[in-house]
C-alpha cells in the first residue's frame, strides 16, 4: 500500500512539473470555467424567474446541484480524463505491453499515471458555489450536512471513474474510442440539473441506464436531508460497488483479447 502511495506521488509530481510549462494557459482555463459556471447559473436564473420550481427544488438547492456538477467536472478533468486519453494511445500504439510487464497492477498504473492541473479552476469554483448555495438554503447547511454529503460525492466520483474506465477498456477491441468519450460527456451534462426536474422517461434513463442521478442529485439530496434519502444512499453505494467490480472484471477480461503490437 505504501508502495502504491509512493509511486502515485512520483507520477503526480512529474506530471505537474510537465504541465507547469504551459502555465499561461491557466488564466484561460480559469476564464472558461467561470464562463461555463456563469452560463449554467444564467440558465437556472431563467428557469426560476417565475414561480416554477424544478421538480420541487428551490433556487439555492438547484445551485447546489450545479456546484456539485462543477466539482465532479473539475475532478474528472484533473484525475480521470488525462489517464483515459493515455489508455487509448497506449493500446493504439501497442505500448501497453510495457505497462503490463511492470511489477505492479496494470489498472492501478493506468488510473493514476497522470494528473492535469486544468481541472483546478472548476474544483475551486465548484466548492465556492457549494458553500454559497449552502448558506442560502433554509435552514442553512452546517458542517454536519457537508460531512454527510462528502461520502456521497466520493461515491459519485467512483461511479464516474468506473464508467470511464470501462469505456476506455473498450479500446482493446475498437481502436478509435475518443468519440465515445465525447458522447458520454454529452449525456453526463444532464447532471447539471436535479434529476426530478426531468420527465419520467429521462428520470428512468438517468437513474438505471446511465447513473447520472447518483453523481450530482443524490449528494445534494443527502446534504439537504431530503425525505427518502436513505434509499438513495444505499442505492448509490450499491451502484458504486457493482460498477467498480464490473470495471475490474471487464479489464481482466479485455486483457485476454489484447493483441500487442508485435503479435
Amino acid at each position: 500500500m505504501t508502495r502504491h502511495l509512493r509511486i502515485t506521488r512520483l507520477f503526480w509530481s512529474a506530471s505537474i512539473a510537465a504541465e507547469m510549462e504551459y502555465r499561461s494557459n491557466f488564466v484561460l482555463t480559469f476564464v472558461t470555467s467561470a464562463m461555463m459556471l456563469g452560463g449554467a447559473v444564467l440558465t437556472l436564473a431563467v428557469l426560476f424567474q417565475h414561480d416554477y420550481q424544478m421538480g420541487g427544488w428551490t433556487w439555492p438547492q438547484a445551485l447546489m446541484v450545479v456546484a456539485i456538477y462543477t466539482i465532479l467536472d473539475g475532478f474528472q478533468q484533473t484525475f480521470l480524463a488525462p489517464n483515459r486519453t493515455r489508455i487509448t494511445e497506449l493500446v493504439r500504439e501497442g505500448t501497453l505491453d510495457f505497462v503490463l510487464l511492470k511489477p505492479i497492477d496494470s489498472q492501478f498504473w493506468l488510473s493514476v499515471y497522470k494528473i492535469s492541473i486544468w481541472g483546478l479552476p472548476n474544483l475551486v469554483l465548484g466548492v465556492a458555489m457549494l458553500i454559497y448555495a449552502g448558506m442560502r438554503t433554509r435552514p442553512p447547511l452546517d458542517a454536519g450536512d457537508y460531512a454527510l454529503g462528502l461520502p456521497m460525492i466520493v461515491l459519485g466520483v467512483a461511479i464516474l471513474y468506473a464508467l470511464g474506465y470501462m469505456l476506455s477498456t473498450l479500446t482493446v477491441w475498437f481502436i478509435k474510442m475518443n468519440n465515445i468519450t465525447y458522447a458520454m460527456a454529452a449525456l453526463l451534462e444532464a447532471g447539471r440539473y436535479p434529476i426530478p426536474a426531468y420527465p419520467l422517461p429521462y428520470r428512468v434513463f438517468f437513474t438505471f441506464v446511465l447513473p447520472v442521478a447518483f453523481m450530482t442529485t443524490v449528494p445534494a439530496q443527502t446534504m439537504l436531508g431530503m425525505s427518502g434519502s436513505a434509499v438513495w444512499i444505499v442505492g448509490s453505494l450499491g451502484v458504486a460497488v457493482v460498477m467498480l467490480i464490473a470495471a475490474r472484471l471487464f479489464w481482466r477480461f479485455a486483457l485476454r483479447y489484447y493483441t500487442s503490437a508485435s503479435s
Binding site: L47, Y52, M54, N179, I180, A186, L187, E189, A197, Y198
Partner: peptide, 28 residues
Amino acid sequence: EIVLWAVSTSLPLIMMGVWVQAGASGDF
C-alpha cells in the same frame, strides 16, 4: 464515427427534458 458525433450533440435533447417539464407548469 459520425453516429457518435451525432450523439455527442445530444445537449438539445437533454435541455428538452428540462424545458418540457418547465413548460408544463404553465409559468412560461
